[in-house]
Amino acid sequence: MNSPRFVSLLVEGTIDELVLRKTIATYTALTVATCYGKKGVADIKKRIANYHAAAVAKPHPLFICLIDLDAAECAVQLRQELLPNPISNSFIFRIAVTEVESWLLADREGIAKFIGAPVNKVPESPDKCLNPKTEIVNLARKYAKEKLKRDLVPAERSSAPVGKGYSTQIIRFIQEQWTPEAAEENSPSFAKTIKALRRLSE
């Protein structure tokens, strides 16, 4: 029981990885061994069955997989599409509703302070935002100071949904300001993930 328990992560990208790492460090005594994936959601969808099969064959280390719900209609259905039923106990599959940025918005005070927006302008139920990235970008467009705005908001005729420095700034926010305890209160999908992680630590 005293030896550290290892988990491996399977995520879409760096932002998801950092959110998961910070959450694990905040709520559990687990140690992250390796982070797999990081090549987008399509890649995870293609390969998740293989990772799951490995978890079935060998229950250690545990796997924690996080993907965004995105445009999928419902989390239960998405899970059924991707994984066999039942899912192995050593494979923790979590879906961020709507995407991991919802969990960032859920720390309303944190994100408001980061962008420089009034707290009451941050959505109260970020899980219900259809496009939380755009929500962050729009807040920045309206309230952020020049330099931050230039990083977060796409240029006028750009086809990119976010600005060129978006990842950099969001990584900085996660590492320096984002508080999982605050986010837990406003995002049911994040609260459920924390519950699942806590069970692992028991």
Partner: peptide, 16 residues
Amino acid sequence: QDLRDLMAQGLTAAEV
């Protein structure tokens, strides 16, 4: 061991 297990499930060296 975990690397071997994952590769046994068809994942590639690049992935694991």
